[in-house]
């Protein structure tokens, strides 16, 4: 049963990562890209969790803990220094 779960979640995570990457490449503003990068990081942490749960090891656990502790620094930094460079600021 675990192999079926692994296949299903692999497909779902691949679609989710593709959507997040599409928003990173398309996203009209810098903040949209940062938000999509955060979602991509959450998807990566989720994929690591699935790997650990299906194969019953704990090799990636410290990596997941580190992602949850310091993963917010990037978006905070970008949001701190973002500036509005558009001429007409009412389209997003």
């Amino acid at each position: 049963m675990m192999h079926v779960v692994l296949a299903v979640t692999a497909v779902i995570f691949s679609l989710a990562a593709a959507g997040a990457i599409m928003r990173i490449s398309r996203g009209p503003s810098l903040l949209d890209r940062v938000l999509a990068a955060d979602v991509l990081l959450a998807i990566l942490a989720g994929a690591l969790c699935i790997d650990m749960a299906v194969n019953r090891h704990l090799n990636n656990l410290m990596l997941v803990v580190a992602i949850s502790i310091i993963g917010f620094i990037g978006s905070v930094t970008v949001a701190r220094f973002v500036a509005d460079r558009r001429v007409k600021p009412d389209e997003s």
């Binding site: 779960v5 299903v8 979640t9 779902i12 995570f13 679609l15 989710a16 990562a17 593709a18 959507g19 997040a20 599409m22 928003r23 503003s29 903040l31 949209d32 938000l35 999509a36 955060d38 979602v39 959450a42 998807i43 989720g46 969790c49 699935i50 749960a53 299906v54 997003s92």
Partner: peptide
């Protein structure tokens, strides 16, 4: 739990692609 957790990621990606502005995309994310 694993399938539902993966589906939440897919929901976030769909919300990122379909919602109109930054604040509603943050809700999905």
């Amino acid at each position: 739990f694993m399938v539902v957790g993966a589906l939440l990621s897919l929901g976030a990606a769909i919300g990122l692609l379909r919602f109109p502005d930054l604040l509603s995309r943050m809700h999905a994310a």
